[in-house]
Simulated assay, not measured.
Amino acid sequence: MKSLRELFRIGKGPSSSHTMGPQKAAKIFASHNMHAASFEVTLYGSLAATGRGHMTDVAIDEVLRPIAPLRIEWQPQVFLPFHPNGMKFVAFDNAGNQTDEWICYSVGGGALSEGEKGRWLTGLREVYKLNTLREIQDWCESNGRGYWEYVNESEEEDIWDYLMDVWKAMKESVERGIDHEGALPGPLNLPRKGPIYYVKASGYKQSLQSRALVYAYALSVSEENASGGIIVTAPTCGSCGVLPAVLYHLSKGHNFSDTRILHA
């Protein structure tokens, strides 16, 4: 099993594979081509077919256009051999000569792959020796430890700093969502409902309030994701609302400390 960093990724919605992955790829390519005069990005296969709806072009544009002019090509009928979510980044100099080219793939959950030809992406090492929940549970019971203590033994020391950043991003996505009124992006002009449910839930009697608040929190984060806001994959953008909603309610409604939330 790999690090929890691969499960919880902080990034831009609404799709871990169509938005977060391409934006991460753009940042990597930009870091190697800061002096480029222009860029061209070609999106292939399913990444191109639904890219506009997932704001793939917006995510890439935010990274590369501040450096140099950018042209994005859409090739939904062309599928590269390794994965349907293929991308090709090209950099040019002032004379229009190609100076760099990189092909990579957004393989889900915000993760990237270079296929069989690695160049800039390093392999992810296995962090956890045990690979099933049953094995981990047996270890915890045999050693009188909690799940978080197994994490503490397996991960690097700064994992708790990273998870604190994750928790902070989760809280902020809930709080933005319950305060963010108006319509979601897109031609349907669907109104946000998270803030409405939050107001309603706040007025319920105590026996009904907990469930209603958790629902309002989860919906609010999902709407932040749909609008291209910053969220945490858990493990994808599509499921990003559930875990923050539960943890936020434990924090606010049951006074759980940050330490207890991180251990959870």
Rank of each mutant, 00 (worst) to 15 (best):
I103Q: 13
G11R: 04
G123R: 10
V232K: 00
S16R: 04
R5E: 14
K12P: 01
M170Y: 05
P185Q: 09
M34H: 14
V58A: 00
T42E: 08
G182M: 09
A264I: 12
G186V: 07
F29R: 06
L190C: 09
V58H: 00
G203F: 01
T42S: 12
V58L: 00
N131G: 14
T132F: 13
F39E: 05
S154C: 11
I136E: 11
A37Q: 09
E114Y: 13
S38R: 09
S17L: 11
H263L: 09
P66S: 11
W139C: 14
S38W: 11
I67D: 10
I136G: 09
F79G: 01
W167Y: 05
A59W: 02
S15I: 03
C237L: 14
I196T: 07
A30T: 06
P14A: 07
V246W: 12
A25V: 06
A218Y: 06
L70C: 13
A48H: 08
F8D: 02
S222V: 10
A183C: 11
P244N: 02
K88M: 11
Y150A: 09
W160S: 12
E114K: 10
W167N: 01
V174T: 01
A212S: 08
I67A: 12
G241Q: 04
G96Y: 14
L247G: 03
K129Y: 09
N152Q: 10
P191Y: 10
I10M: 07
N255S: 06
G146C: 15
G182T: 07
P191I: 10
I72F: 12
Y105D: 01
A95W: 15
G13H: 05
F8R: 02
H180V: 01
H263V: 06
A91E: 01
D258F: 10
S207E: 14
E153M: 12
H263Q: 14
G253M: 06
L80E: 03
S16T: 04
L247P: 02
D158T: 14
E116K: 15
Q77N: 13
G194M: 01
L4I: 06
I230R: 02
Y105A: 02
Y198E: 02
P81H: 02
H18K: 15
S31T: 10
D179F: 05
E6M: 00
H18Y: 06
L64E: 06
R125P: 15
W160R: 12
A95N: 15
K117V: 07
G11F: 09
R125N: 15
V221M: 01
A25P: 03
L112Q: 07
E62R: 00
G253R: 04
A201L: 07
Q23A: 10
G186C: 12
S251Q: 05
S257Q: 08
G51Q: 06
S17N: 13
E153R: 09
A30L: 08
S17V: 08
K88V: 11
A245D: 05
R145D: 13
V78P: 04
R176E: 05
I230N: 05
L130D: 07
I230F: 05
E73H: 12
L190R: 10
R119E: 11
W74Y: 14
L70T: 15
A216H: 02
K2D: 15
I67G: 12
E62I: 02
K171P: 02
Y197V: 05
F29A: 05
I231L: 00
S173E: 03
G144P: 11
W139Y: 15
W102N: 11
A212Y: 07
G118N: 11
V41M: 04
E141D: 13
Y150W: 15
Y197M: 12
D258E: 08
A59C: 08
M20L: 12
A218Q: 07
